[in-house]
Design a protein around this nucleic acid. Sequence first.
DNA 1: TCTATAACTTGCATTTTGCAAGTTATAGAT
DNA 2: ATCTATAACTTGCAAAATGCAAGTTATAGA
Lengths: 119, 119
Amino acid sequence: MLEPRSGCPIATTLDIIGDKWSMIVVRDMLVGKTRYNEFLASPEGITTNILADRLKRLEQAGIVEKTPYQERPVRNSYNLTEDGEALLPVLQEICRWANARIPGTWIPPKSFMDRRPER
Amino acid sequence: MLEPRSGCPIATTLDIIGDKWSMIVVRDMLVGKTRYNEFLASPEGITTNILADRLKRLEQAGIVEKTPYQERPVRNSYNLTEDGEALLPVLQEICRWANARIPGTWIPPKSFMDRRPER
DNA sequence: TCTATAACTTGCATTTTGCAAGTTATAGAT
DNA sequence: ATCTATAACTTGCAAAATGCAAGTTATAGA
């Protein structure tokens, strides 16, 4: 992000993760997925180019960190940073809103909804 | 929205308000703005075509309702529905995240952060 | 050697967003 | 009566983001 649109915390947050896919990737990481192919396999069907781009942007934003889990060939795992983990309450509130207001949305596992951020 | 990408509450919510502008408009309504020109005047600088489109879509999604506040000429006011008001906790959590994690973001007025949804 | 897998990249079409100007209806000032 | 201003949009076109399909690299295992 070059410049946020304003100092508003909502606008600034949307400048970072306010697109169609970033929070889906964060959601996947919050439920334990760490690899490229695991994100691709999610039911929403993110495409390879968009996923690669989002991982790069989330890394640059300090929300995700990339670490190799093997050499030859290099394979990376993607994990949330502390700032990324801290998005949990935001995603939980979104789930509460959708479950209360949009009939038919899946009820997330209790383990997800009851989980507390670590710090 | 024709079809949500999946039944996931997060994905479905993003299909409705997960673009660059919808939550900015919802934010403005949560702090009492009701008219086209008031939304245009916000510091993020939404353009007229996008604003008209977002108001239409939010209305179709049942988040906003449009009511004329005068005839000759017809002038409309836009207000959140119950479903729209219920997004308050989501926007509050986004503010908490941004204030904690992104230095320099504005601290919203206490009246906004402490407010409880009505039902 | 052949097939498979993980993790990408590339090219191009489609869709969304942004910018600037134009439109309609009306009120109030000159 | 004409002129200026305001609210609330619409329209046309350019630019950026997203989607689709195929191609690439490195390696393991049959």
